Amino acid sequence: MNQKIAIIGFGKLGQTLAKALKNTTWNLVGVFDKECDKGKNIVQALQLRYYDNLETLLFEADIIFLTVPDNLITTLAQKIATLNYNNKNQYFFHCSGSQNLDALQPLHTSNIGCFHPLQAFTENTTSLENTYVAIDGEQSSLNIATKLAHTLNAVPIHVPANDKPLYHAAACILSNYLVSLTCIAEDIFMKWSIPREALFGLLQSTVHNIERAKNTASALTGPLSRGDSSTISQHLEVLPDKYQHLYCLLGLKTLDIAKANGTITDNNYLELRNLLNNKI
């Protein structure tokens, strides 16, 4: 590819994108971050240029990724719009899961788009392979985003602008709230000095079961899936008060799944539903 790509914002996502792009035929020319030392070792390892001047980077790039926090995207777009350079053929992509194209409107160009990998990033993430990427934009921007995704062995999916908040809420439930639930379980397990490493086997086996199941719901196990009201009653007797409400709310959803799976009787369902509702 002859088009030159630049990355503005070099946190976990920016670093992952740089590592992934460097192993492709796309021409990644360099990065910019207001914290000029962020990820400097990665820039050196990838033999990239760390620009100390934003205008210089913009002048040399054809495709620019804004991998900054959501609340800084529009501010950055406004700053870019004030700089004294002119390249009407440039394309700008932000990587927010919640923001739509309006965040880039200060650029006054239709060559804008969204490119959000549905993945949780760490400093050690090096690839977007098999990652689903939510894209949006005018047709020319969608074409570029699609080509980029395919080059990275990712899977592009079109999420329209109006649906971005709901899409991002689902992502937060799956990723962020899983961390929250794990913290709650870890807090309870600490009563017996059980280390956090002990949780990993259960977490990994659950994910493995979901992957292998014909659908997510059919991977459900546990007392609610069996209609075991005696065990649920015991849980409610011993759980700390601070976790009772959340346990019951999640239990009601789990109960609906068990009913849909056909693993409990109508009587089991009603008995357990009343049990959980009485604790809310």
Score class of each variant (00 low, 15 high):
F59S: 08
S175C: 11
T82K: 15
K88T: 13
S141A: 13
S175E: 09
C114M: 11
V207Q: 14
A45D: 15
P223F: 05
A77P: 11
Q204I: 15
I144K: 06
L220H: 03
L202T: 04
N274Y: 05
S140W: 11
G39P: 04
A20R: 03
L118G: 07
L21R: 02
L270R: 08
S230H: 12
I5A: 01
A20C: 00
W192T: 01
Q244R: 15
N23G: 13
F189N: 13
A134D: 03
D163T: 08
N86I: 07
F32C: 07
H245W: 07
S225N: 15
N143E: 05
I42H: 11
D70I: 04
L76E: 10
S96Q: 00
P117Y: 06
L46G: 05
C172V: 15
K22S: 10
K259H: 12
H158F: 07
T263W: 00
M1I: 08
N278C: 14
I80Q: 06
N143D: 15
L276Q: 00
G137Y: 05
H94E: 13
I73L: 04
I173P: 02
N100M: 02
Q15A: 10
H208W: 11
D163N: 09
G227H: 09
E186W: 07
L224Y: 00
L17G: 05
E211T: 09
T231Y: 06
E237C: 12
D163Y: 03
V155E: 15
L276H: 00
T125S: 03
L270C: 03
N53T: 02
F92N: 13
T216Q: 14
Y51N: 04
A198T: 01
Y167K: 00
L118S: 07
L220G: 06
P69G: 03
T131Q: 08
Q204N: 15
T24G: 08
I80G: 03
F32Q: 15
P240N: 08
E138V: 10
C248D: 05
I194A: 11
F10A: 12
N124H: 12
T126C: 09
T24Q: 01
F59N: 04
L148T: 02
L255M: 09
K147N: 15
A18D: 06
L148F: 06
P223Y: 04
N268H: 14
L83N: 02
K191F: 14
L276A: 01
L13S: 13
I135N: 00
G97A: 06
S127T: 10
Q204T: 15
W192P: 11
L276Y: 07
N274L: 07
L272T: 03
E186L: 09
A258W: 10
T221V: 01
I7G: 03
N209I: 08
L46I: 10
K242V: 05
E197N: 06
N2S: 12
Q15M: 04
T24H: 02
S233V: 14
A6Q: 00
L224A: 04
T74C: 04
L239Q: 02
